[in-house]
């Protein structure tokens, strides 16, 4: 009894149930299981399902096309612009639908525009590169041009200009080839709407600037630089002499030989390698780069040339 009297104030408190919880400011217990369940459901679907932007409620194709033209600071003809974004697969799909509904609305696709644009891009890029890298022979220029017009580069440019949402195609997400073709069609549309000069500046600002930061020699693979160099030098009649100018760690794994090329007793280039043969090849490559004016420390490519430059043959004729 005395026990009860003594602890009468404490007993209600003991009877009250206090849940034992430890609260702390960290990632809660339920977060991981929830994320795992979401991941399970996503995998069941077969990956994340992304809807194309033009199926959203907030979509206005006309406004998007207008904004696209304004973003690039160019005035496109609106019909040509829509035609440039229409892919052949979309036209086929639309025609199938229209057959059922028996309406006949002709939609033009972008193949002719793409061909025109591609042809113009090839010629203009050739002329531009010839002017900017005037010492590089035709083979090198062709390799750089092929790289710039390749599907990989054009699709990358097209993607970052925001075409992937506007393109009208049968499937989503859009293929790289369709992106590249759309870009070519845009060039063609610009050519027809605004003329050659504006289209030239467009290609210069978006395609040729992809050379910024790239080593121009990477695109042209020379198999035997030594024979090429000796042929070129023999035409001029000068004397070419390779000499060993440094060797380190001979007969070890980390051997390094330095070979210098001397043209008429003056040093032209040097190369280093694990064996003397490799070093000689590297020295020959450096010498070729110097002759073509495409070394690493060359004056940066001018990305601001205006108008359409004249071809080499024309300028040669005028010089003579």
């Amino acid at each position: 009894m005395a026990f009860v009297r003594r602890f009468i104030t404490v007993i209600p408190k003991l009877a009250k149930h206090v849940p034992i919880t430890v609260q702390s400011r960290n990632i809660k217990r339920w977060v991981a299981p929830t994320l795992m369940e979401l991941k399970r459901r996503e995998d069941k679907q077969g990956g994340k399902v992304t809807n194309p932007r033009n199926t959203f409620l907030e979509w206005n194709l006309e406004a998007e096309l207008y904004a696209f033209g304004k973003r690039l600071n160019e005035e496109f003809d609106s019909d040509l612009l829509l035609q440039a974004f229409t892919d052949r697969s979309y036209v086929i799909k639309e025609e199938m639908k229209q057959k059922e509904l028996e309406i006949d609305l002709k939609m033009k696709d972008n193949r002719e525009l793409a061909e025109e644009g591609r042809k113009f891009m090839q010629e203009y890029i050739q002329l531009y590169l010839e002017t900017v890298l005037h010492k590089l022979p035709a083979e090198g220029i062709m390799c750089i041009r092929n790289h710039l017009i390749s599907e990989k580069v054009l699709s990358n440019v097209s993607f970052h200009l925001g075409t992937k949402d506007i393109i009208l195609a049968a499937e989503y997400p859009v293929d790289n080839s369709i992106l590249a073709q759309t870009f070519e069609a845009l060039v063609g549309a610009l050519l027809q709407s605004c003329g050659e000069e504006r289209a030239a500046h467009f290609v210069r600002d978006f395609v040729i600037t992809q050379l910024q930061g790239q080593d121009v020699n990477e695109f042209w693979e020379i198999e035997d630089p030594w024979t090429m160099l000796t042929e070129m030098i023999s035409k001029t009649g000068s004397e070419l002499e390779p000499r060993l100018i440094g060797e380190v760690a001979k007969n070890t794994l980390l051997a390094c030989y330095r070979v210098g090329l001397y043209l008429d007793k003056k040093m032209m280039s040097s190369g280093f390698g694990e064996t003397v043969a490799i070093a000689k090849e590297m020295a020959a490559r450096e010498a070729l780069k110097k002759i073509f004016g495409t070394e690493e420390t060359m004056h940066p490519i001018n990305f601001k040339l205006n108008g359409i430059p004249k071809s080499r043959s024309q300028s040669k004729i005028s010089a003579s």
């Binding site: 904004a67 973003r71 690039l72 600071n73 978006f206 992809q210 930061g213």
Partner: peptide
Amino acid sequence: LQNGVGRYVCQLQR
């Protein structure tokens, strides 16, 4: 896309 080397393009789309 080497923005700024050629012409500058505003990156906000919508």
